[in-house]
Nucleic acid binder design. Sequence first.
DNA 1: CACCGCATGTAACGTGTTACATGATTCA
DNA 2: TGAATCATGTAACACGTTACATGCGGTG
Lengths: 177, 177
Amino acid sequence: MAVRQGLLAVLSDGPQHGYRIKTRFESITGGVWKLNIGQVYTTLDRLERDGMVKTKEASDSKLYSLTPAGKSELAKWWEPDATSETPPRDELVLKILSALSLGTDQALKVVAAHRTALTLLLQQRRAQMNASDKDMSLATRVVNDSLLMRAESDLRWLDTCESRLLAERAEQKESAR
Amino acid sequence: MAVRQGLLAVLSDGPQHGYRIKTRFESITGGVWKLNIGQVYTTLDRLERDGMVKTKEASDSKLYSLTPAGKSELAKWWEPDATSETPPRDELVLKILSALSLGTDQALKVVAAHRTALTLLLQQRRAQMNASDKDMSLATRVVNDSLLMRAESDLRWLDTCESRLLAERAEQKESAR
DNA sequence: CACCGCATGTAACGTGTTACATGATTCA
DNA sequence: TGAATCATGTAACACGTTACATGCGGTG
């Protein structure tokens, strides 16, 4: 749920045709996040249907541009979501919590497995960042920062989660005595 | 993309009927993540279609239970995704990077706005956690940990992102002289 | 010539999500 | 009696995603 607005954002740079929108979208993320070209056109169709973009037929290509409504949707997207209601479901959290319904031990196993995998992933990413170093665009650097920090955050969470689970298990044994 | 496996996980506790599955799903997340009851049934239909669950008609309710295939899908879901391919798109990152196509200043504005909003959110969540304190279930605690750490991580990323943007802008002014 | 990049699309499917409809039971 | 909870579902839609088809133009 970000393709839509991402395409609008590309268009805020001026009218473009579909193929160009795709390549520009990919380049603003440093090439990390790709788009299937088909999705670009279906999304653009939906945006046109919703009055967010308008098209202008050119000789052998089609120019898309933002409508006022499109600009407004884009501006709204760039604003923080004050109405933060229910935060989106987090798959990792859900995995651990659902494993808990089979018992603390199962949950701890899932935690351990994910920690191992994440630690590895983190090392790889760190190595990759050090290897590339200077020849990275701003976009690439920023995306990599995010991937790294996300992994670190998940790892920290797994650790505190584990201690909570261990405490819980200790309590269970306590009351079972 | 976690409802499917979440429902399977609930069923790993033994056969249940749809309504019960819904309430159990919600309770394993401490009530933070709700499900529309309709979605439970459509998802269960799809799971049955795919041979992951089987049903048994009872007097006035319908019992769902895991098939071997369902157990296997669940077990696979609990394993870490070694094939980490392209990481999922991150909406916050996309917002900032796409704003960058309108210039460093626009990106910095979006960063600042989100930092303000996130800081506030973080304070609220911290206050909420301190207020509740002891009467929280393990699930609630674990989910809250995750929400907190996620917010903290996003904030940290916004900060480093900002310094990168400031450096970029300084360079631009440098070369414009 | 054959391949690659540019360019536009369609059909189909999966998942998530909501709104709506229906009925039984329980309990204040 | 009327509201809440238990219980089952359908219809419709949004978005993401992929596979596939088509055509043009340049270049090795």
